[in-house]
Design a protein around this nucleic acid. Sequence first.
RNA 1: GCAGGGUUAGUGAAGCGGUCAAACACGUCAGACUGUAAAUCUGAUGGCUUAUGCCUUCGUAGGUUCGAAUCCUACACCCUGCACCA
Length: 417
Amino acid sequence: MNTALSQELAWRGFSYQTTLDDSAGLDKKKFTFYWGVDPSSDSMTIGNLAIAMMVRHFIDHGHKAVLLVGGATGLIGDPDGKSKERRLLSEEQLEHNKQQIIKQYKTIFAGQDFQIVDNQDWFKDINYIDFLRDVGKHVPMRQMLGRDFVSARLGEEGSGISYAEFSYSLIQGYDFLHLFRTKGVTLQVCGSDQWGNSIAGVELIRRIENQEAHIWSAPLVINKTTGEKFGKTEGGAVWLSAEKTSPYDFYQFWLNVDDESVEDFLKIYTLLSKDEVENILSEFRVDPGARKAQKTLAREVTKLVHGEEEAESVERITACLFGQGDYAELTTKDLGAMKKMLPAYEAKKDEDIIGVLASSGLVSSNSEARRMLAQNAISVNGKTVDENYRIQPSDSVAAGHVILKKGKNKYAVIELK
RNA sequence: GCAGGGUUAGUGAAGCGGUCAAACACGUCAGACUGUAAAUCUGAUGGCUUAUGCCUUCGUAGGUUCGAAUCCUACACCCUGCACCA
């Protein structure tokens, strides 16, 4: 690697808060570091992905990665940032989630050197009394109570906090201690929201082992236009798993990133070098309308998460749908791919458009279908239709399929029966 | 445990016996303009084969009334004091 890691991280915007005196410390010594994801869902989101990308850079610069799934912590629930107590997950659900997260680790870090650990493995045998004697003894209450999330939850407007959630940071702290002892881990990387929990581990290692350990945190990714925490869309979070967010939606999400934020995201979410990014950006600034930056971003991230083949397939579909494209040119093969990515439904010949819309899920009720039709928001194969329209066999493009569109960029494929 | 206050659509928040499917704001969706962007403007925003109509909604269950989101009772949950505990 020609760029030092500290430089790389600073340039990409992965640098927020650290316990290291000097970030150049990352360049002098090779750390064994860890990063953890809680299996509170069966997929990571693009929020996790940002940290994952940062981890990539650590690995690329020769640091050794330990990736943790929080089997134990997942049983309790991380209180950070949530104003309400979390609902507990069943053990079966948790097991399933864990497997999915591990799978995603393996996809994102394919071909890289890393090991995966589960904190359940060391917590399942720990006795509560022993834990209090060995760990609890070393934790000053003043510090625990001083944490932002604790004061917020206990404060005037707070919703209170259970003992279990309160203890969360101790448990996470113990992870660090355990990994320090068994694997020589001396660095934890995390999102800035995890800072409080991570620092607990640094404290424990200092107090119990009298050794130094460090944290490197990345800022939360913020959408510059809205100022909001990034990663949510109308359907909720943007997930990495194809089941929860289809590759098409995933690609579209990146393609629709606004001009303000696209530079940040290119740096964070792609592995393109500084030169490459700068070339793209200069081209983009000359002609923003061509959206070179968004297109590159969308392709790169989709490729990374869903693979090259899916990325190309999605690009082809996008070109068909949004190019000046004549739908008649779509082949049966294209349609097959589209049916996997877009919502796909069946309809009878001569079925009225309102019924088709409602059953396709593009609208949530017949009333809404009428509303959309009245506002000229619905088109069939690119032609705007009205309320009286009925699906006809003669409308079909390849192999008895019809492309239904609502608004500017919501599509569904309808198969005529 | 006692005493006060609260619970309204996606969110915040009005309404405090009829004109309430429920103000307003935000959000969301759509249209125009564009670049599948942002900003702006316009419209829509419980459901019903679209109706000066019907149905379901204002924490839950009952009640009073010709009529209840609005009054009464019980229950649940939340907040604020006080007490209990220490």
